[in-house]
């Protein structure tokens, strides 16, 4: 039984990371109506920057986190301005292919800069934070991940619901044209969304690399796709949906790793996505949009 709880807790921790990444997907999808395929690779860049500052140069942790967040925010905004903004009116196919191109660009830039071999990532969490409750060891990384995720989610919910920029984001996601008529700067709002999503991706990248202490050019790809699964699971465009979807997916993945098959856990996660899309294509908390002619 205690092993079940420890799997459950590490599943929640992994799911929290997915939730952070899924927030970036779901916010961008809600506002720009596009699947930002490169989001997973922004995580990887965040991880590399933190590795460079913290593990390689030996500078303090807070500086590494700030650097990673700043670089990712700039990266996210620049990607949006250069690659996605000119395609606002293009077909979804063109936008998706561009996003895949950006994803490949980031992966291969990292590959050429840092080499194909994975680097060992020193955890940003001190070992002394780990605790043991009733015979279950909980690592410091798990605790920090869950706490950070909860804080970010509360902050983000408050931001989106009660600030002016947050209201602008909701308005743009509801109806871009009408929002523009109401005097909302749509371009700035979209940039802001990308900036927030990328900042969350940087944090998620650092937490991910601390939990699984490695960083390579493809580190972000799989978690990125799984987090998108989580966003779809929770209902794309919905912030609480992304949180619930992420955590549920993390638990499913860890439990299936433990009790079914460690090799087939990815397949099981993807099967969940397919079943969700078939049974409830709008996800748990998503809303149905009627197509207009």
């Amino acid at each position: 039984m205690s092993s079940f709880f420890s799997y459950l807790i590490s599943g929640i921790s992994l799911g929290s990371i997915y939730a952070l990444i899924a927030l970036g997907y779901t916010m961008v999808y809600g506002i720009a109506k596009m699947l930002n395929f490169a989001h997973g690779d922004v995580i990887m860049i965040g991880g590399y920057i933190a590795w460079l500052v913290f593990s390689s140069l030996g500078l303090p942790v807070w500086l590494a986190i700030i650097c990673a967040v700043i670089v990712c925010v700039i990266l996210g905004v620049v990607i949006e301005k250069i690659a996605y903004k000119p395609l606002r009116t293009a077909t979804p196919l063109a936008v998706l292919i561009t996003a895949i191109g950006v994803s490949y660009l980031l992966q291969n830039t990292a590959l050429l800069t840092f080499g194909p071999a994975s680097k060992t990532f020193t955890s940003v969490v001190p070992d002394s934070l780990g605790i043991s409750i009733g015979g279950i060891d909980i690592t410091g990384e798990t605790i920090v991940t869950i706490v950070v995720t909860v804080l970010i989610m509360v902050g983000l919910t408050l931001f989106v619901n009660y600030t002016k920029s947050g209201k602008a984001m909701r308005a743009v996601s509801e109806d871009r044209g009408a929002a523009q008529l109401m005097g909302i700067n749509v371009n700035r709002t979209i940039s802001l969304t990308f900036a927030i999503g990328s900042a969350l991706a940087a944090v998620a990248g650092i937490l991910l690399c601390s939990t699984y202490p490695q960083i390579g050019p493809y580190t972000g790809a799989m978690p990125g796709i799984k987090a998108f699964t989580a966003a779809v699971f929770g209902g794309i465009g919905s912030i609480p949906g992304a949180m619930i979807g992420g955590i549920v997916l993390g638990i499913i993945e860890n439990l299936s790793k433990a009790y079914i098959s460690s090799q087939l856990s990815d397949a099981i996660v993807f099967a969940v996505l397919i079943v969700v899309l078939l049974v409830k294509p709008t996800g748990l908390l998503g809303k149905k949009i009627n197509e207009k002619v």
Partner: peptide, 19 residues
């Protein structure tokens, strides 16, 4: 792969960008 990625993005932008 780096060159492919750049060409992919450039081609999509050239074919679809309004400007």
């Amino acid at each position: 792969m780096l060159i492919y990625a750049i060409v992919l993005i450039a081609m999509m932008l050239i074919n679809n960008s309004v400007a």
